[in-house]
Amino acid sequence: MPTDPPAAESSALSRRTFVTTTVAVGGAVAVGDLVAAPLALGAAPAAATEAVLSTRVSLVVNGKQVTATVDNRTSLLDLLREHLGLTGSKKGCNAGACGACTVLVDGRRVNGCLTLAVRLEGAKVTTIEGLENGDRLHPLQQAFIDQDAFQCGFCTPGQIMSGIGCLQEGHTGSADEIREWMSGNLCRCGCYVKITRAVEQAARWK
């Protein structure tokens, strides 16, 4: 299924290498022009050609101030994974259907793949990498281990971030309630029974 105009795909430099070299973490300013390559190939519709197509954005990720100049098309998920090297959040469907990219933005669980990074000026983002307290796991991380709540592990970071949202929202009154309020996270290994138990365990711990 085509998800990108072809012109945006070709670049001599791999995207991951390119963006990694043009981003700064911890308050410094990034100066790279991330959109130069795709635009030179003329993919922009007429209305956009004159306009500014990248934007500088400052946000806090796992307690650290981050400033980056991003192509306006960059999702929060791609900012995390490709620009900041935080590859815990996963790209499953990239369409808001699987929940593998779930992170907290200003305390609320959201789909990172449907969030444009450019919209996050001043936001506070928490990812799976931001949960550990020193060398101690978050109680829900520990619960996933205790309950053996994963097989391949691909959906697990999203499950845990969504579970934290579920716990904070107070939707842990019963296994049925947890199942309903965790339904935005798919697990193709089928670990739902144990995922539900893990959220129950963390709810008791609180």
Binding site: T3, P45, N94, A95, N111, L114, L116, R119
Partner: peptide, 21 residues
Amino acid sequence: IAGGTTLVDLMRETVERPGAL
């Protein structure tokens, strides 16, 4: 663009092609 959950999804599929958000 408000929540963006439909629009961003459809922009990625190139069903939606706004020049300015």
